[in-house]
Design a protein around this nucleic acid. Structure first.
Length: 276
DNA sequence: ATGGCCACTTGCAGTGGA
């Protein structure tokens, strides 16, 4: 089973690339961020023709997230319950863990789907703009809200994946120029504290479970030929719960779409799970 | 060596991204 996350920076512009990518990488679930479109403009038909269904949580101009999947997402929740937010940043859904089960009404497990299934949270974390700014304060409050909610979610959904554009680096290994970016946005101690607090809930950075190429990044500035010079940041992450960790067989950043014409500034990250 | 971004807006300059 494969899951992926990708900040597409406008689904309107990037839809052909997303469809091409899905054809080459037929993942079971794809979380998208920065749709930059409203729900009424979401291209459901294009995804249906590609064999996918979609749950979207759109917003005009900014933000907007979606879950694209082979089987429909169940128990869909939008944003963070308990955290009042006027931005569309989070979408969650449940999926069968592994192969789509054969229908059998006479032999149903007594376990609710939430316990045996896979809970997927796709998230577009706030950027924060600049330490000390109002947007940074919002980012910190949002992270507090996320953690309080996740602590509860993990109790009811032991098989949980949190993936998306976190807009935070774990440490200097995620930064092309650690000295130049010290205490800058995405690299501050406060942001990294929040990321470690998610780890303390029992979530593991899937990328670091495996040997990775040196200087692995998921985002490169459009300016200064940053991609060709590999001047990037690793800010797109896939975190897995304790129960899922033993099933993770790979986690890879796919730089291929960043080489497209008119690419997103982010690359997709792909998680492979060894499921029955 | 150096500078060069991109998407969106009741739009043609300003905001936000990262």
């Amino acid at each position: 089973m494969k899951l992926a996350t990708w900040n597409v920076n406008s689904l309107t512009v990037r839809l052909p690339q997303v469809l091409d990518w899905l054809q080459a990488n037929p993942v079971d679930v794809l979380a998208l961020q920065e749709l930059k479109l409203t729900d009424d403009k979401f291209p459901h038909e294009a995804f249906a023709q590609a064999g996918y269904t979609a749950q979207c949580f759109g917003q005009k101009t900014y933000n907007g997230v979606a879950l694209i999947s082979r089987t429909p997402a169940l128990d869909v929740v939008k944003n963070i319950p308990g955290f009042d937010d006027d931005m569309a940043r989070v979408i969650s859904g449940s999926f069968p863990l592994g192969e789509t089960p054969v229908e059998n009404s006479t032999n149903e497990s007594t376990l609710p789907l939430s316990n045996k299934g896979l809970r997927v949270i796709g998230a577009y974390f706030p950027n924060g703009q600049e330490p000390g700014s109002d947007k940074f304060e919002y980012k910190m409050a949002w992270l507090d809200g996320l953690r309080a909610w996740l602590r509860q979610e993990l109790l009811t959904h032991p098989n949980l994946v949190l993936m998306g554009d976190f807009n935070i680096t774990f440490d200097d290994a995620d930064v092309w120029d650690p000295e130049g970016m010290r205490d800058q946005i995405h690299c501050t101690d406060e942001e990294r504290y929040h990321l470690q607090a998610l780890v303390a809930l029992g979530l593991s950075d899937a990328h670091r479970l495996f040997p990775q190429p040196a200087k692995s990044y998921s985002w490169w500035d459009y300016r200064d030929m940053a991609f060709r010079r590999n001047r990037g940041l690793r800010i797109d992450h896939i975190l897995v719960s304790r129960a899922l960790k033993p099933l993770v067989s790979a986690c890879q950043i796919d730089k291929t779409p960043r080489k497209n014409e008119r690419p997103s500034d982010h690359a997709p990250v792909v998680l492979s799970l060894d499921t029955p």
